[in-house]
């Protein structure tokens, strides 16, 4: 079962909810895997403190000239992304624009263009007790986050997979939602939270992933019950504001270990998410 924890708005508590759910299921004896796919700002490791047993550099292929360019200019002509220029026997590649599609290589009649790997970030794998841990970190200055997001999110793993998605509703978020059984959307009871939740629900529906909602800091803000009901996505949990959760999170502690009442809330959310995922499947 693949559970993606997402939100339109940032900072609503994706990492809090996803790390808590992952630990909860792992401790229940479920084979579980936590994937931090927010490669621009991965934070799960700060809380889970995994023992890392494998680190590899992630690459995306970009064109490289190996041989004599005949300056026919076809690569430049066929590149839809303006990522390659052919000038007087030299080829200039703009890797931040390149989509790694290989059209330039196909276009190269003398066959001197090849795709060569370019490093854009790191993927790590490890363990937190019985919980498997995977995360990705984009190199500072790199732009193509969605590629690494896809790479991290598609790392093979079995059992229950909990994916901590990047914020927003553009390509990196979509990359994590593909193939998910259910999306847990974390929001907060403010106009920002609701507005972005609406976008996230639309994103899930356009991808055919059923959404459920968790309202974080549910008592800080306004009355949003009517608005939530209108979205038509079931609310599977409400986390009232608790300064002890805020302080534990600030320190990098596991909030379910520090605040028993929060652990109960998480257990309730876990059950409701399982149920909703099974219902959606049948």
């Amino acid at each position: 079962m693949r559970i993606v924890v997402a939100s339109g708005k940032g900072g609503t508590g994706k990492t809090l909810v996803s790390t808590s759910l992952a630990l909860h299921w792992a401790r229940q004896g479920q084979e579980s895997c936590y994937i931090d796919a927010d490669v621009e700002e991965p934070n799960g490791h700060l809380f889970l403190q995994p023992a890392i047993d494998a680190t590899r550099r992630f690459t995306m292929p970009v064109p490289r000239l190996e041989g004599t360019c005949e300056a026919c200019g076809r690569c430049q002509e066929l590149c839809a992304f303006h990522a390659i220029l052919a000038i007087k026997g030299r080829v200039l590649v703009f890797p931040e624009l390149c989509h790694s599609c290989g059209a330039c290589v196909l276009a190269c009649l003398p066959g001197v263009l090849h795709l060569a790997p370019r490093e854009i970030g790191t993927i790590r794998e490890g363990r937190v007790g019985s919980l498997r841990f995977i995360d990705g970190t984009l190199d500072v200055g790199e732009a193509r986050a969605a590629r690494l997001t896809e790479g991290v999110a598609s790392t093979p793993c079995g059992g229950r997979v909990i994916v901590d998605a990047p914020p927003g509703t553009s390509c990196p978020a979509v990359a994590t939602l593909r193939g998910a059984d259910i999306a847990v959307l974390v929001t907060e009871p403010t106009p920002f939270g609701l507005h972005d939740l609406g976008l996230a629900i639309r994103m899930c529906r356009s991808l055919g992933v059923p959404p459920v909602v968790v309202v974080n800091r549910s008592d800080l803000g306004g009355d949003v019950e009517a608005a939530l009901a209108e979205f038509g996505a079931p609310v599977v949990g409400r986390i009232p504001f608790d300064p002890r959760i805020a302080v534990a999170t600030a320190k990098g502690e596991i909030a379910i270990d520090v605040v028993p009442r929060f652990a109960e809330t998480v257990a309730g959310i876990a059950l409701a998410v399982e149920r909703a995922a099974l219902e959606a499947r049948s």
């Binding site: 990492t15 700002e41 700060l46 809380f47 200055g141 999170t249 990098g252």
Partner: peptide, 20 residues
């Protein structure tokens, strides 16, 4: 930013980018 390990970690990466 706000106090805490997550925001601090993210802030450092942002400050690196601003310097870049």
């Amino acid at each position: 930013t706000e106090p805490g390990v997550a925001a601090a970690h993210d802030l450092e990466r942002l400050l690196d980018l601003a310097r870049w």
